[in-house]
Amino acid sequence: MTTDQTARPREFPAQQQQPPGSTAAMTPVPDHGEESYRGSGKLTGLRTLITGGDSGIGRAVAIAFAREGADVAITYLPEEQADADETLALVRSAGRDGYAYAADLRTHEACVEVVTHAVAELGGLDVLVNNAGYQMARGGGIDSIEPDRLDRVIKTNLYALFWLTQQAVKHLKPGGSIINNSSIQAYDPSVSLLDYAATKAAINNATVNLAAELGPRGIRVNAVAPGPVWTPLQPATQPPEKVEKFGQDTPLGRAGQPAEVAPAFVFLASPRDASYVSGTVLGVTGGKPVF
């Protein structure tokens, strides 16, 4: 995979979309590892469900998991159909089974249905990746958080994680794992992301707590905390002027690409490499501290 820092963009043209955003409309289009990720059998035969797997970090994780030998099911919002179709094609081009479910995970019923479908089509479940998330950074602080926005952020980021996990643990066997997507915002919150940051801090807490609860059953629970990563959520939820400087406040001086985050999920999902890793939040932040 590319390691040359100069090969990654350090600034972006001002741009704006409406949520949830589209990959094809981004300039530049993110790197999900389509051309660079090479698998080595780390996840051979694992049956995985990745929420929000149509684009961004979710797409990169789906590609990496498939190329590491896993079968992959993803969820996506109905308006993300084009992105979901492309991700599914990439999974299947790796020679793995791939499935996709259009679902708004803000309801308990949708979460139960998604897991039920995934288990039936995959023939079981070994890994759950709670990746789907929502933020809105246009506006100010507490005064800008309308009831509908708060409801969407908390239900997407937190309620869904609980509901999906409740259903998944009925099927996970010893050796299975759950990986939650946290954020640098849990440690270094932005004023404009008060609600989002709060959910990410809660996800860290839930990760450690679930690791303690599920450890005796042989199920590992971990989280990845990305820093600023170039995904459709950024031009869809950030002001254009913020997009231009996105990620420049990190020690590495740039935003990350989804392809640079996916290997952390691969490591945590691997029953060989991470067999004794549970209750951990792994930072992929461009140098920002996670403690």
Rank of each mutant, 00 (worst) to 15 (best):
G52M: 15
Y196T: 08
S183A: 09
L90E: 12
H108S: 08
Y196I: 15
F265A: 06
F12P: 00
R254M: 12
H171N: 03
G256A: 13
I145P: 03
A62S: 10
Y101Q: 02
D195C: 14
Q166K: 15
S177L: 06
A64T: 01
G133D: 09
L150M: 11
H117D: 13
G141Q: 06
A64V: 05
T280I: 08
E11M: 09
R272W: 14
A201G: 14
G287I: 05
I184M: 07
L252W: 09
H108G: 04
P263T: 14
Y134D: 00
R106D: 07
F246M: 08
A236R: 06
L46K: 03
A225G: 12
G33D: 02
Q185P: 05
E146C: 08
E35L: 13
V72L: 11
A255F: 06
V208F: 08
R272G: 15
G286H: 06
I219K: 02
A103W: 02
F291N: 05
Q16S: 13
V277H: 11
V224K: 07
L214I: 09
S40W: 07
E109F: 03
K170G: 10
P271M: 11
K155A: 11
F162I: 15
L214C: 14
A7H: 01
A236L: 04
T165N: 01
T27R: 02
D188R: 15
G95Y: 01
G69L: 08
N204F: 09
A70S: 13
I178D: 03
W230F: 07
P263Q: 10
V266P: 00
A160D: 01
L105Y: 05
N157K: 09
S270V: 11
I184E: 00
M26N: 07
T51H: 02
T51I: 04
E79G: 03
P13K: 12
T107A: 03
P226C: 10
T51M: 05
Y196G: 05
K288G: 00
G133W: 04
G283T: 12
A82L: 12
P240V: 09
P20K: 12
S22H: 12
Y37D: 08
L194E: 03
E109L: 08
R149T: 12
A269P: 13
A212S: 11
R96H: 03
G215K: 01
V169W: 04
G247E: 10
I203P: 00
